[in-house]
Design a protein around this nucleic acid. Structure first.
Length: 425
RNA sequence: GGAAAGAUGGCAGAGUGGUCGAAUGCGGCAGACUCGAAAUCUGUUGAUAGGCUUUGCUUAUCCGAGGGUUCGAAUCCCUCUCUUUCCGCCA
């Protein structure tokens, strides 16, 4: 959510950001409503002030045993006009909110222009894609050949975009999640959390999946939303709070299933585990002061990269263009892992600095001891990593000619020392 | 699911129709005392929005949320949410 005061002072910048995102300029309309709102509010406050004065006089008159009927009538007539203005103030305020709540965050200055992924910029590349002396398979083919991945039965039980994992492959996924959490908690300074998977509307509004993206989410019969990412639960942990600036940054992480309807993804990634309605993800969230959020963005990106480095999976870091970023983000780094089966880099993590955009929506603030007043915190979130997609990457990168899969060294301790995954017996 | 009691500032906790944005205590901040610290004493200390003659002044709103009654609501009425305790059920 934008700060109306900031728009008042920087209308051109506001519009410029929107245009970079592929949106129409909105400052003229917003400022017109804002002007109306403020003038109405002043009128209303004047009336309220008069009412309060008269009420005090009535109290005094009654205390002195005087007659207060005339005064009381005066307030009554004053009140009849107040209700209308009150209604108008509320309506204009709502109109402003309706406009602002569906506008995306302002892109940072240093990110590429462009409305889609074609102008995303490569920030850095790590690792050499492995040379195969056989034709590498895609993960779903590998998994099914091993008898450890079953899409067919999942389709019967649930439908498209679900999977069963069996035996060592199921265990490998669990090992991956554990490895990620251990890295983040022991090495990167995150606090592990166990979080709600079902949340209410105001939480989803806070992280800005609502009101605009309701069709991407699952809703229960009694009105809960299934989280599409632990970002919702983790970030809202700080909703409505005033945090000590001295204690920031706060870093939290959680392993959760994520639920997505994939409403707009018909025909995309229909095979395999890349795009499922339900998948595990380790999410990182950081809360910082306004001064420290860019620094924290780098730290979080590095934390995600560390996971891939530890698994020796080649990847590159992309800086997303203005129009390709998520709604709440000012700057997003995507980590793309090399998938030999697909012969391309695929997104495995997305690390975003949301600035004060979500903090305003969920009223998360911070306060310094030597400072008057409060400020909105900056929120950041990033996948660290998408567990299902990491499993895919491990399978494709560590496959052998006979169809077996080597267990990356970093995961062996989570697999009881097992070094290779073969057919289920 | 049934019954009862609650929700007040950073925290604890008074306040049942009229200078109540709210006593008191703790905490925080500033000062005094001290070589320094502790203890003690004194003062100070909420948020949001608007206006202005803008390091300040002023107006409004905020006592779980939303409505209502009233000249006036933390206080009375209604709805909702949450918490606690007891009973029931349950991984």
């Amino acid at each position: 959510m934008y700060d109306i005061k900031w728009i008042r002072e920087n209308p051109e910048e506001f519009d410029k950001g929107l245009v970079r995102r592929g949106f129409e300029p909105h400052s003229a309309k917003v400022l017109e409503l804002d002007k109306k709102y403020r003038s109405l509010q002043t009128d209303l406050q004047d009336m309220q002030s008069r009412r309060n004065d008269l009420s005090k006089k009535i109290a005094e008159a009654k205390k002195n045993g005087e007659d207060a009927d005339v005064l009381m009538h005066e307030v009554s007539s004053l009140k009849s006009g107040m209700a209308d203005i009150d209604e108008e103030v509320r309506s204009v305020c709502e109109q402003i909110e309706k406009v602002l709540e569906i506008l995306p965050n302002r892109p940072a200055d240093d990110i590429p222009d462009g409305l889609d992924d074609s102008t995303n910029r490569v920030v850095r590349t790590w690792g050499e894609p492995r040379k195969f002396d056989f034709k590498p398979l895609e993960h779903d083919e590998l998994g099914e050949k091993l008898g450890l991945m079953d899409f067919e039965q999942a389709a019967k039980v649930s439908g498209a975009r679900f999977v069963y994992l069996k035996g060592d492959l199921a265990k490998l996924e669990r090992a991956l999640a554990q490895y990620m959490l251990d890295m983040h908690t022991e090495k990167h300074g995150y606090c592990e959390m166990e979080v709600p998977l079902m949340v209410n509307s105001s939480a989803v509004y806070g992280t800005a999946q609502l009101p605009k993206f309701a069709e991407d989410l699952y809703k229960t019969t009694d009105g809960y939303w299934l989280i599409p990412t632990a970002e919702v639960s983790l970030t809202n942990f700080f909703a409505g709070k005033i945090l000590d600036e001295e204690k920031l940054p706060l870093r939290v992480t959680a392993l959760t299933p994520c639920f997505r309807s994939e409403a707009g993804a018909a025909g995309k990634d229909t095979r395999g585990m890349i795009r499922q309605h339900q998948f595990y993800k380790v999410e990182m969230v950081a809360i910082t002061t306004p001064e420290k959020s860019w620094e924290e963005h780098e730290h979080m990106t590095n934390s995600a990269e560390d996971i891939l480095k530890g698994l020796n999976l080649p990847y590159r870091v992309m800086c997303l263009s203005a129009g390709d970023m998520g709604f709440s983000s000012r700057k997003t780094h995507d980590l793309e892992v090399w998938l030999p089966g697909q012969d391309k880099y695929r997104e495995i993590s997305s690390v975003s600095n949301c600035w004060d955009f979500q903090a305003r929506r969920m009223d998360a603030r911070c306060k310094s001891k030597n400072q008057k007043g409060t400020r909105y915190v900056h929120t950041l979130n990033g996948s660290g990593l998408a567990v299902g997609r990491t499993l895919v990457a491990v399978m494709e990168n560590y496959q052998q000619a006979d169809g077996s899969i080597l267990v990356p060294e970093a995961l062996q301790k989570y697999m009881n020392g097992k070094k290779v995954i073969t057919t289920y017996k």
